[in-house]
C-alpha cells in the first residue's frame, strides 16, 4: 500500500515538471514551426505579415528548388565532412591534453592550460586576414584544410580540452591508484580506466565541436569559393535574387532540410550517451 502511494505521488510530482518543460519548449520550438511553415509557402505568402501558420497552398516545390538553385546535397555533404574532420582532429588532440592537465599534471600544467585556452579568446574576424593570407600562401584556398586545421587548433580543441579536463578532474583518485597497483601502464590507465568513465563529456565535446563547425560562417565564406565546395551556412545566403532580395521560402526550405538530419542524429546520440553511461559502471 505504501508503495502504490509513493508511485502515485511520484507521478503527480512529474506534472509540474512536464508543464514547465512544455512551456519552455514552446518558446524554443515556436520559431521552428514558423520556419517549417514558411518553407512551404509561396514566395509572396512568406512575406505576409502577420504570418499565416498553415500555408494556403503547400509548395513542396520549394524543396525541389533548393537543389535546382544550388548543389545543396553536395554542400550539405561538405558541411558534414568538415564537421567530422574537425571533430576527429579536435578529439585526437584534446582528450590527451585534457587528461594530462587533469590527472598527470606535469610541471607548468597551469601555464600550459591557459596557453591552450587562449585561442578561444581571439575574435575570429580579427585573425581572419593573417590566417587567410597564410592559407593562400599554402595553396589551401577552396579546400577543407583551413576550415579543419585552423578551427580545430584555435577554437574547438581548446574548448574540448577544457571539457575533458573538467571531466577527468572529478574522477576519484582510487581508480588511478588501483590501476597502478595492478601494474597497468600509463597508457592503459588512460584508455582502459579513465576514458570509459568520461563518455558523456566526450559526447558533449563532440556536440560542441560539431555545433561550432556547423555554424561557422565567416571562415567558409572566406576560404571557400566554388559552389561545389561551399558549406550550408554560406549556401543559405545564396538563395537570393540579386535585384529583389532574399527568397525566404527557399531559404527556409533549405534550412529545414539542413536541420532535420542533424536533429535525427542528435536524438539518436542522446540515447547513446545515456546507455553508454549506464554501461560505464560508475555506480559500482
Amino acid at each position: 500500500m505504501r508503495r502504490t502511494d509513493r508511485r502515485v505521488l511520484r507521478a503527480l510530482r512529474t506534472i509540474p515538471s512536464y508543464m514547465l518543460l512544455a512551456l519552455v519548449s514552446v518558446a524554443f520550438i515556436g520559431p521552428i514551426v514558423w520556419m517549417v511553415s514558411g518553407s512551404l509557402k509561396s514566395r509572396n505568402e512568406v512575406l505576409r505579415y502577420p504570418p499565416t501558420l498553415i500555408p494556403e497552398e503547400f509548395r513542396w516545390d520549394n524543396y525541389a528548388q533548393v537543389f535546382e538553385l544550388q548543389p545543396f546535397d553536395r554542400q550539405f555533404l561538405n558541411s558534414i565532412v568538415i564537421m567530422a574532420l574537425v571533430c576527429a582532429l579536435t578529439l585526437a588532440v584534446a582528450i590527451p591534453a585534457g587528461y594530462a592537465l587533469a590527472r598527470v599534471r606535469p610541471r607548468g600544467a597551469a601555464a600550459i592550460f591557459l596557453l591552450l585556452l587562449s585561442g578561444i579568446f581571439l575574435p575570429p574576424e580579427s585573425v581572419i586576414i593573417p590566417l587567410f593570407r597564410f592559407a593562400a600562401q599554402l595553396g589551401w584556398i577552396d579546400t577543407y584544410i583551413p576550415l579543419v586545421v585552423f578551427t580545430a587548433t584555435l577554437f574547438t580543441a581548446p574548448v574540448a580540452m577544457f571539457v575533458m579536463r573538467q571531466a577527468f578532474v572529478i574522477l576519484p583518485q582510487e581508480f588511478e591508484e588501483a590501476a597502478t597497483l595492478d601494474g597497468a601502464s600509463r597508457w592503459r590507465t588512460m584508455f582502459r580506466i579513465f576514458l570509459p568513465l568520461v563518455k558523456p563529456s566526450i559526447a558533449s565535446a563532440v556536440v560542441f565541436t560539431a555545433w561550432y563547425s556547423w555554424n561557422q560562417f565567416l571562415e567558409p565564406l572566406v576560404y571557400l569559393r566554388s559552389r561545389q565546395m561551399l558549406t550550408v551556412p554560406v549556401a543559405l545566403t545564396l538563395f537570393e535574387d540579386p535585384l529583389a532580395g532574399p527568397r525566404w521560402n527557399i531559404q527556409m526550405a533549405a534550412t529545414t532540410l539542413s536541420v532535420l538530419p542533424v536533429l535525427i542524429v542528435f536524438l539518436f546520440a542522446q540515447r547513446q550517451i545515456v546507455s553508454g553511461l549506464t554501461a560505464g559502471g560508475l555506480k559500482s
Binding site: F28, P31, I32, W214, T255, L267, Q270
Partner: peptide, 10 residues
C-alpha cells in the same frame, strides 16, 4: 531536442 534545435539554425 527542443532546447537544442535553435543552436542548429543560422
Amino acid at each position: 531536442a527542443a532546447i537544442f534545435i535553435p543552436a542548429l539554425i543560422t
